[in-house]
Every structure is written in C-alpha cells, then in structure tokens.
Amino acid sequence: MTDATTPAAEPAIVVSDLHVSYRTTMERRPTLRKAIVRLGRHERTVRTVDALKGLSFEVPRGSVLGVIGRNGAGKSTLMRTMAGILPPTKGRVEVVGRTSTLLSLGVGFNKDLSGRENIVLGALAAGLTRAEIDERYDDIAAFADIGEFIDMPIRSYSAGMTSRLAFSVAVHQNPDILLIDEALSTGDAAFKERANAKMKEMVAQASTMVLISHALASVRTLCDECIWLDHGELVMHGPPDDVIRAYVHKLKVTESAVVMEDL
C-alpha cells in the first residue's frame, strides 16, 4: 500500500520530539467541599502526569501505522495530540489533511438525543457543513445498519450498535487521516469484516490511518508499520511482524491465539 505514495510525497503526519504532560486530580469526584478541607490540611491531590516523553516518527501518506503497548503506555494521549484535542507540552505535531477521530469512547455524547441527532451534531462539531452531512447521511445510516433505532435515543442502543454508528460516522467524513482507537473491539464478526473492507478501501484511496489495537492479529494484517510505546517512550518502530514479535517477547508470553486476539 505504501507504493501508492511517491518517495517525494511529504508525510501525512510528522511527530517531532513530542512531550505531553498534564496536571490531573487524583480524586474520583473533585468537589468544593473536599478542596476546602484539603486547604486546611495543606494537602494537594493534583499530580503531573508525563504521558509522552519525546516521541519522534513520521507516517507516510497512504500508509497504516499500528500503535501497540500496554495500558497506560500513552497510546490514547498520542492519538488525542495528533487529533488536536490535547496540546503538546514540548515538541511539535504536523498533520497534513483533514483528520477524523474514532477514539475508544465512541460517538453519541448525548444519550437523550436520537442516533440521527447525534450523527448531525458530531459531524457539525467535527467541522462538516450542513450540505455535506445531508449528502452523506444515508450512507452513514446504511453502513451502521441499525434500522429504525436511528430515531431512538442513544441510551436504548446496545454496545455493538453504538460502536457501529461511531465507526460509520468517522469513515464517512471522507478524512485524509483516520485515527482509530480500539474501535473494532465491539461489534460482531460480520461488521468487523465490513469495517476491515472499508478501511482497506480508504487506504487504497490514499487515506492515512493510525490504529491503536490490542488485537495484534488485526495490527499485523492491516498495518504497514508499527510503533511500540511503553511508559510514554518509543521502544521500537518498524515492520509490524518485527515489532509485534519483540513486544510479545517482552511480555514473556508465547504467541498463542489468546494473545493475538485479546492483548
């Protein structure tokens, strides 16, 4: 798939010396009352998290990059930084093209609104115009295949329906770059197959993709290159087979079928 791009073509994503740290609270639910009590005791619960520590890599246009690593390695933070949701603390990210994000929590931020309203709102927030949404609405609904549920509140949806809808919305924004975080973990086999076909079709059209997955088998089949993150640092960058082998070796487990699907 990489041969679709000429050597002179500039990369779709350039990440240089990227550091992201943020301050976050250790409380489950921060309240004013607790803040006042803490003030009396001179306690602090705000902690700085260094999520990414100096990453540098490029993603050529039209290629698929897999991101693997254990929980808390910084994969989702990396995705959010590339999407422009979180700002870098140091370094720089350059992205050429329109980005569409499909991060783990999915679409449908307002559970009281219908699927239809959530599609329109999500697309408007992502920067699509009314005309673009009207043009694609039928395709989105058809691909998500949730039937009459489209006019019901999202709270009545099953997990599979929500993720199908989220995937459908993300791919129909005609993005140049698609960022996917664990999106295929729900949904039945038939939908996974259609989703994989759609992603291959998009890559053939010179779309670039970054895919976070614990399902190493899909990283192996879909990706051209792979990076392995651990504790916010880039451990390895190379062909998926090599990186996955090293990653699995590090985990001190053999490549059993369980690991390939569930890690």
């Binding site: 679709a4 870098p88 329109r98 779309s207």
Partner: peptide
C-alpha cells in the same frame, strides 16, 4: 499549502495543514 496532485478519488485537492505546538 496545496499538496501534490491528489490521487484519483482522494478526498480533497487542497489539503489542510495543522501544526500543533505548545
């Protein structure tokens, strides 16, 4: 910046460029 000639079926011929810095 106008990107290189877009491939057939490519979504946009004028590509957006986003730079995210501190």
């Amino acid at each position: 910046a106008p990107g290189p000639a877009a491939a057939p079926g490519a979504p946009a011929d004028v590509r957006e460029r986003h730079v995210y810095e501190p």
